[in-house]
């Protein structure tokens, strides 16, 4: 299969976010990383309630307000204006990170430059140039009961993002539990990538060739499906 054919089978970012959202159970507390992971909030299955946490001190925030209605003291970690849902709470930064580090969050969903089969994550800087900035990423990867990564399966120039060992600076060691890519859903179990779902029409050998570490099959591998979605951010 050519790179073009591999590319043609991929899910859009919105579809990756949708697929991850299906695994967030009712009644959970969830932190979504800045940017792409924020899309997951849009695709919550009906009938399930999730309370979203933002590091800067809000539980249970909702959609952005209409333009012109922003209150800039009511923002998320990405510094975007948000609204509150009934039952929301404010707290200071030490309490906020007690929620993170203390194991009180059920799920954190983050983007990635690279994920290693060991569960190591690299998502905060690519090289040593420029101004380094880490924010809350290193805290978020420790403490949430499950750490999901959503990502393209390969880089823009076709290099694997799922690797044996990360070559970029680490955000955390052995912290990722599940990866949702444009082509597959993969669990990290005892230092191995275990394939759970892959795109229909994709051959295992092709997926393996696009992955920088061994893919294991410990049980059934099902089709990775997502509805057609329109997203202005996709």
């Amino acid at each position: 299969m050519s790179t073009q054919d591999f590319d043609a089978l991929k899910l859009s970012n919105a579809q990756i976010a949708w697929r991850a959202a299906q695994d967030i159970a009712d009644g959970t507390y969830v932190n979504l990383g800045i940017g792409f992971p924020e899309m997951v909030a849009r695709y919550q299955p009906p009938g399930r309630q999730t309370i979203f946490h933002t590091e800067n001190g809000i539980l249970d925030f909702g959609e952005p307000p209409a333009e012109g209605e922003e209150d800039w003291d009511l923002i998320n970690a990405g510094k975007r204006a948000v609204t509150l849902k009934p039952g929301a709470a404010f707290f200071h930064h030490a309490d906020s990170f007690a929620m993170v580090r203390g194991g009180h969050l059920d799920v954190a969903i983050l983007g990635a430059y690279q994920v290693a089969e060991t569960g190591d994550l690299a998502n905060w800087r690519i090289g040593s140039k420029g101004v380094p900035a880490v924010g809350g990423a290193m805290d978020l990867v420790h403490g949430a009961r499950q750490v999901f990564v959503i990502t393209e399966h390969v880089t823009k120039d076709g290099k694997p993002k799922l690797v044996e060992r990360c070559s970029f600076p680490l955000t955390g060691v052995a912290c990722v539990t599940r990866v949702y890519t444009s082509h597959a859903v993969i669990d990290i179990v005892e230092g191995r990538f275990v394939l759970r779902e892959m795109r229909p029409g994709l051959a295992f050998d092709t997926l393996q060739a696009m992955t920088g570490a061994a893919l294991h099959r410990d049980g059934p591998v099902t089709d990775l499906l997502a509805p057609a979605l329109y997203s202005p951010l996709a």
């Binding site: 930064h93 030490a94 101004v131 809350g136 805290d139």
Partner: peptide, 20 residues
């Protein structure tokens, strides 16, 4: 920073909060 005129101590956000 890029001109080397200001120092930076980069601290993860939760660690910064807890150190304070």
């Amino acid at each position: 920073y890029l001109a080397g005129e200001i120092e930076l101590e980069l601290v993860p956000q939760g660690t910064l909060a807890e150190r304070i």
